[in-house]
């Protein structure tokens, strides 16, 4: 294992893409875990903590595969704990603040639906490791959609206050949904190699599902020209939120490198 072993461009793009998948899950998992012990009721505290664990578990699988691709002695922990914000490739949506329960629910819903249709494609992709990780994850994601969409409907079509809060959450998060479907350089490359479909492909399905649930929740759908966001989280350009997440998540490994307990 030589640390500076050159890796060819195609492996490199697959490596970047694997990190992107992992980072999405790690950051959203971490965000959700911030609710642990603070959930509105005990049962929902556990429910959201379970989802956080599912997401971190999926992230670990992808990081382990990324370490295998990199083959320079990196481990899953290297990627999670020793990279800076500009090296993270997660979409901006998952790093947004928890806000109130409604915003957390909506963020989970918008992301889970995206993840569902994306993983349905990845499950059939030519990379066998990614195919098997996503196949296993799909069962978990199916439940995440069920759980979060019930809450979106319950709150959207609930009281005047819950409806107003969901409206507000929709307003805050809608500027980050377009990024999901704007391919990053590595997504274009691996789509070209036939490993994965272009993310534009899943946009229509995502929209259809999200629209159906929002309609039931008596909430307006996000308008097409909502995208005022010029950053690309996928390419390592992040909102300030990610820096705060990382400074907490990585503080132990940064202060005591290699520590175990």
């Amino acid at each position: 294992m030589t640390p500076n072993q050159p890796i060819n461009i195609s492996t490199n793009q697959l490596f970047n893409y694997t990190l992107h998948l992992a980072d999405n899950n790690l950051i959203l998992g971490h965000r959700n875990s911030e609710w642990t012990g603070h959930g509105p009721v005990l049962e929902q505290d556990i429910a959201l903590s379970n989802i956080a664990l599912d997401l971190v578990g999926q992230a670990r699988n992808f990081y382990q595969y990324a370490a295998q691709l990199k083959n320079d002695g990196s481990t899953e922990d290297t990627f999670a704990y020793l990279r800076d914000a500009n090296e993270f490739k997660n979409v901006l949506l998952v790093e947004q603040s928890n806000g109130d329960w409604g915003k957390t629910i909506l963020r989970q819903f918008l992301f889970s639906v995206y993840q569902y249709y994306l993983y349905q494609q990845l499950e059939k992709c030519s990379d066998r490791t990614i195919a098997s990780i996503t196949e296993k994850a799909l069962k978990e994601i199916t439940y995440h959609i069920r759980w979060s969409s019930e809450w979106v409907i319950r709150l959207g079509d609930g009281t005047i206050e819950s409806h107003a809060r969901m409206n507000n959450a929709l307003h805050e998060l809608s500027e980050f949904t377009d990024e999901l479907f704007i391919p990053a350089s590595y997504e274009i490359e691996i789509a070209r190699q036939g490993i994965m479909v272009d993310p534009v492909f899943i946009n229509a399905r995502w929209r259809e599902k999200v629209e159906a649930i929002l309609r039931e929740a008596t909430l307006p759908f996000l308008s097409e020209d909502n995208n005022k966001q010029s950053l690309s989280g996928k390419e390592g350009q992040h909102t300030e939120n990610l820096i705060h997440i990382l400074s907490e998540m990585q503080s132990l490994q940064r202060a005591y490198p290699g520590c175990e307990w």
Binding site: V41, L42, E43, I46, A47, N50, W147, E150, R154
Partner: peptide, 20 residues
């Protein structure tokens, strides 16, 4: 036992609390 607003939420809460 657990708290829930309706049968569907009770079912999901039970799944999350008692079958993990």
């Amino acid at each position: 036992s657990l708290h829930a607003t309706d049968a569907q939420m009770a079912m999901e809460n039970a799944r999350d609390v008692y079958t993990r």
